[in-house]
């Protein structure tokens, strides 16, 4: 019986399409009709800009000489552009240092709040999340004032204590200062992702652990962390994308530290100044596309690694 039944099923399955092929074909167009409103919006809003950027990146428009098709020249130029690679290196460094620090702190806070041993839990949750609700522009302006060595908070501390703190907006420290702002802004956001993942862990697991005599650290290591791996991967991917797209903070601090933050400080800032002060829209499009691909690639690798451990 186990041997004879599969062929029978297969035969029926093979017969069925033969009979109904024609009507189904017509139906498939009806389906597209229903999808059309979505597909049109999708094409206009998502596909058209990407295609247009790709199209732009194949040309070169000069002040003298006008517009010309140059094929992949812009991409060749991007790959040998020290300013572009310099900016990419800078955001990679930022990614390597700032993201782990931020995620670790966010995890720590989420675990602390989740532990149930914290007094005033909801107050801390709100207070730590609050910076995320402050617009990045406002947050950066505020930190810019704090960082001021003459009239800002740093200046006030120097004056009050008679010391000389290093200037947070000097070329050597400005990346760390930006990292500090971004960490401040996004700890709450990541904490909330982790916290909500922690809340859905069934309490029965904790009870079982308690019966087995596991301590708090053991519970964290053996239950909590494995259970929120998905959230960790997601937060990491968001942070990678965020780091590569770093723009607001350096762009606003630039007016306070013009010599520390160059026009090619981050890839996004570089693309921005290329197109809006340099009118090199074509090259700027190429830089943006290369950057998008690199971001996708790294995010994909991180996702693969995260998923593999899961399985």
């Amino acid at each position: 019986m186990t041997v004879s039944s599969p062929p029978a099923v297969a035969r029926v399955a093979a017969d069925a399409p033969k009979v109904k092929r024609k009507p189904r074909f017509r139906n498939s167009w009806t389906g597209w009709g229903f999808l059309a409103p979505f597909m049109i919006v999708f094409a206009l809003v998502f596909l058209a800009p990407i295609v247009y950027s790709l199209w732009l990146s194949l040309f070169r428009n000069q002040l003298v000489g006008g517009n010309a098709f140059v094929g992949l020249d812009n991409y060749v130029r991007a790959f040998s552009d020290p300013q572009f690679w310099g900016s990419l290196f800078r955001v990679t460094l930022f990614l390597a240092v700032q993201v782990p620090v931020m995620l670790f702190l966010a995890l720590l806070v989420a675990l602390a709040i989740d532990s149930g041993r914290l007094y005033g839990r909801s107050f801390f949750r709100i207070a730590i999340f609050l910076p995320y609700a402050v617009p990045a522009v406002v947050a950066t302006l505020m930190w810019g004032f704090i960082y001021g060595t003459r009239f800002g908070l740093v200046g006030n501390i120097n004056e009050a204590l008679g010391i000389q703190l290093p200037n947070p907006l000097s070329p050597d420290l400005v990346l760390a200062s930006i990292g500090n702002i971004v960490t401040w802004e996004f700890i709450g956001y990541n904490m909330l992702i982790f916290y909500s993942a922690l809340r859905v862990i069934p309490t029965s697991l904790y009870e079982a652990a308690e019966i087995d005599g596991a301590g708090q650290f053991r519970v964290i290591r053996a239950i909590k962390l494995p259970a929120i791996r998905g959230a960790l991967v997601i937060a990491t991917i968001f942070s990678i994308i965020g780091s590569f797209q770093l723009f607001n903070e350096p762009s606003i601090l630039q007016s306070l530290a013009p010599n520390a933050i160059s026009t090619s400080f981050t890839p996004n800032l570089y693309a921005y100044s290329l197109s809006f002060s340099g009118q090199q829209y074509n090259y700027s499009a190429a830089v943006a596309i290369v950057m998008g691909l690199i971001t996708m690639l790294i995010a994909y690798v991180v996702q693969l690694r995260g998923m593999r451990k899961d399985g």
Binding site: N259, S262, T263, S264, S273, G278
Partner: peptide, 10 residues
Amino acid sequence: QVYANSIFND
């Protein structure tokens, strides 16, 4: 000059 000025600080 517009672009040149924008890269002065670089």
